[in-house]
Design a protein around this nucleic acid. Structure first.
Lengths: 195, 195
DNA sequence: GCTTGATCTGAACGCCCGTTCAGTTAAACC
DNA sequence: GGTTTAACTGAACGGGCGTTCAGATCAAGC
């Protein structure tokens, strides 16, 4: 047996990534085997190596893809304006974006330690670039007297931790819609940094 | 060869737990082997089974121990008072307690998915009991008109996520002392829930 | 319709896994 | 000092791991 009916790399490739994303998020990178991923797609393990040089690259590709699309979406979305408006926009954007891809978020925060040092550096750099977006807003607002934060860097990390935490409890079938959640969090963020 | 010089279970037992804690936190439960843990303590893998029935119990014991001591310490520390004072006390307690045991915190938040369903239920229950402590304070303060939170449950989770986030960036050698960090976070928490 | 190249199988490689256990040694007790 | 018991070794168990590759099969272009 060999090449199977209806096999196409442009279909199988994304299916491999999707299966890896789901399984890594569910069970963790180290606990998922290449055979499991292959099984999910309906392949033998060997066939995966048409799509990734190794397991590590598979993980890195998922995380890099997530961070790239996060930074891209953020760049598209930032409409400028005064710091308060920008902060509200950032808050709502962050919540919406993260709630739309819970698996990728989970992996990107949990599997950092399973990256090789070089790959870790890349992801860390992208994460810092995203944090800098928020820090810039807070710094600008503080300089204008609109915000009062004791330590801009700490405030940045505190706000991001608070916002990202939403992914640990939010359920689509729950009692709150995403816009409602956005508003609740924006209320807390606004007050937390208020002058 | 067999029993080694100076071998005592009351010494080896804690050493096994400490090594497992360190290694699980560093590399993740699934990525750490029993042979690695044993090596760290200077044993063969088989000897570990004098101290734990299996690897899963080792993880569960660490997490249960952490949650128990968290709830114990919290029970000891709650001095009562008005909701604002209690909230400040909770904030400072949470930060201090978590910064004192980063490895246990890391494991307890990251390795939930590696617990068997029954063990998961136990840890989840303890975690909820801890969250209820904060939720009680917020509810009491809101009823008294001291706090203004749109959704008490969401506010609870948001505050805890923000506070726990401190463990991801705080370094002992860094520019901030623990009390300074406590004060910065308390300032944000206070304002975030303020009326 | 033939050829070519992309896609996948199935088997194998060497290695590590969690766990068990008979046997051996050191500590503890009388 | 002899006996008992706690602590540990070393080897083995069956099985799964990531990765490689020759060979088989299908899709696509002429």
């Amino acid at each position: 047996m060999a090449r199977t009916q209806g096999s196409h790399s442009e279909i199988t490739g994304p299916r491999v990534e999707a299966a890896a994303l789901r399984l890594f998020a569910r069970h963790g990178f180290a606990a998922v085997s290449m055979r499991q991923i292959a099984g999910e797609v309906g392949l033998q393990a060997g066939a995966l190596y048409n799509y990734t040089p190794d397991k590590q690259s598979l993980l890195f590709g998922l995380m890099k893809g997530h961070m790239d699309s996060l930074l891209d979406a953020r760049a598209q979305a930032d409409k400028g304006g005064d710091p308060v408006a920008r902060l509200e926009h950032f808050t709502r954007f962050h919540i919406r974006f993260h709630l739309e891809r819970p698996d990728a978020v989970f992996i990107s925060y949990m599997e950092l330690r399973n990256l090789t040092p070089e790959n870790f550096e890349v992801i860390e750099g992208l994460r810092r670039r995203y944090e800098d977006e928020l820090e810039g807003i807070l710094r600008e607002g503080a300089a204008a007297g609109l915000f009062d934060v004791a330590d801009t860097k700490v405030a940045t990390l505190a706000v991001i931790a608070m916002l990202t935490g939403v992914t640990t409890w939010y359920r689509q079938e729950g009692r709150l819609t995403v816009p409602e959640v956005e508003t609740i969090y924006w209320d807390m963020v606004r007050k937390a940094v208020a002058a």
